[in-house]
Amino acid sequence: MQVTTKTLPPSLWRVRMHLWLKGMGQSWSTFRESPIGVTGLVIIVFFGLLGAFYPIYPWFMGKIAWDQETIQKEGIDLNIVYNPIFGVGNDPLLIKGFPQPPSLRHPLGTNADGPDVLAQIMYSASREFLLGMMAALITVIIGTFIGAVAAYYGGWIDTLFMRLADVFVLFPPIAFLVVVSALVQRAGIEMTHMLLALILGLLFGFGSITIVLKSQALTIKVKPYIEAARVAGGSSFHIIFAHIIPNILPLSFLYMMFNVTTAIFSEAALSFFGLLPSINMSWGLMLFRAHTQGWILGHQGAFYWWVWMPPGLAVTLLCSAFYLVGRGLDEIVNPRLRKR
């Protein structure tokens, strides 16, 4: 069999790449058929662009909403005016008091402390993406690896990880996060996005995802080509990484989408209840301030809608979007759900 390995044409990778691309193309055309997945993707792209647009936002606003003379005369620094955390600067408009309703200079108005709401939304968008992706990636890497290893080796490794998964499935995740963030605060550690992503990733990585991915890996393990690879002298490492993991990746990717939703939601919720004092700007925090300062319930009608509507909608839409993409992918990964 070694001979075969040697005589393999050098273009093997090209063949694999070609097959992979072809598979992706087919998946994409299936995905495109479900309006649900496409709706999600459109929303994700929208928020992605919003986050990407943030660095040029002050410059852009300077071009369309300010005349250069005023800027020069008053010595206004737009980077300060549109700073999402400190805001204000010496924007003459804002001296009239906050929160300012939407205007040309502030498309979504300002909040009660002065910063521009749209700037805050844009600034937070990229951070939410980063947090969601990081947490989901950690979860999925752990889940895929443990699932593949547990399925391949079986025995005590399998038992150990499955029992552990049982414990993690029982964990009340939000309660646990609340307690952990209270403890982290008590210990005087700064809870950054990265640390939160790590905690979220670990919390969900050992739970139900390992059980699902393991059962998927088990169905792959009994396929003839795994047997063939073993007979051909493939090492366990090779079989796990070259055969089992690539085959459970689609399912992992699906779960990743759902985990992004969970991670973004968790961060927003913890911020909303003031449990993440180290994170100085996020959609959840915007809502926290709007709520505690009484802009949601304290005033008749929806008068100050721009203070609380955009962040609430942003969290909801982005969470929904990843979930919708997950549902769309589900129709590809799980052929039993497909239309005939």
Partner: peptide, 20 residues
């Protein structure tokens, strides 16, 4: 779509909207 929206809605915010 509306189910997913309600399922993933930011709960505290939605509860406040309902109260409001």
């Amino acid at each position: 779509v509306s189910g997913v929206f309600l399922w993933t809605v930011f709960t505290p915010w939605f509860a406040l909207l309902m109260i409001w």
